[in-house]
Amino acid sequence: MGSDATMVHASAPAFSKDSGKKKKNIRAARLKQCKLDARREQWLSQVKSKGLKNFTYNATQPKLPCPTPPPSSLPRPSDGSGGEWEESIKIRAKQENIIKLEDLHDSDTESLFNSPSSTSSGMNYLMKNCLCESHSSHSSTSGSGSYTQSVNEEKDDDGDEEKGDDDEEKEDDDDDGFDDWETIADALSNANDDSENCPKSETKPIPFREDIHSDLCNHDVLKKPEGLPRAWRSDDAFRPQSLPSLSRSKHCGISNWMNEDGQASLCPICYEDLDLTDTSFLPCSCGFHLCLFCHKRIMEADGRCPGCRKLYNSAVGGDQNVAITATPSSSVRFHCSHSINPGT
């Protein structure tokens, strides 16, 4: 976020009302960014109704008789600087409250017209746009094109301080209106539903957001019937089909060399497990697997492959067989010498 430095910077001069209004406006704009950061964090972290109510406090408390909790219960972000932060916001809010609320409506309608699907858009779309807006104004990553443009213009306007006080104030409030996406959401609902009645509808967005949240929760419940942080089970009906289905035998490393069909590779002669060396050991072209011990015993006896009953050495591709049989034995020898050396 990087808001700590600017916040401390901005909050101290906000106390002194003697400083020039232009400077104040610039710093207030910075402060708004910090505030927005904090609010966004809050919004992300606690989405319960209690948290939601508190979000609207700063903008509405001084003017509107809304059932908002006292400022003491305001949940503060972890990086907020306590009383300074809150007080400066209070002061600023008092100063700009009236204009803000009016301008919010203006900006809302503007944004409504800017947005391509404004006529048919419901509250959800506006909320989304506001979220995008707040996001793009900070990190300037992306978002709806018209919104980012308007934000940039406003920032440019903020940048040059040659304009009149009224203008600046208005833009500042405009900016605030854009940044304060919570308030925008509230005001938009007002603009949509009952275009003028502010105080009544101020309480409306709160249950509305709760609905959204509960909807999300319901979706979660639909997706995962248990509702617990549990991994998908293979027999889960809602398990995404894109997930690979791993059989249990493939998870344990010992049986990695099992056959594709999942059955353990046993030496068909002695019924002992085949290890990796044994499975890679193909003494006969017929593909008959057996362990090295049994192969040695067979070679000492009649020397025929148990699979095709052909003599091992006279089987097809004798050179190849010799090479294959030589590889494991040499590796075994190497192993032995290697293990002996550290001991001595």
Binding site: P268, I269, F288, C294, I298, R304, P306, G307, R309
Partner: peptide
């Protein structure tokens, strides 16, 4: 059971 025996 005679010469065609295989250990398999």
């Amino acid at each position: 059971l005679k010469n065609a025996w295989s250990p398999a």
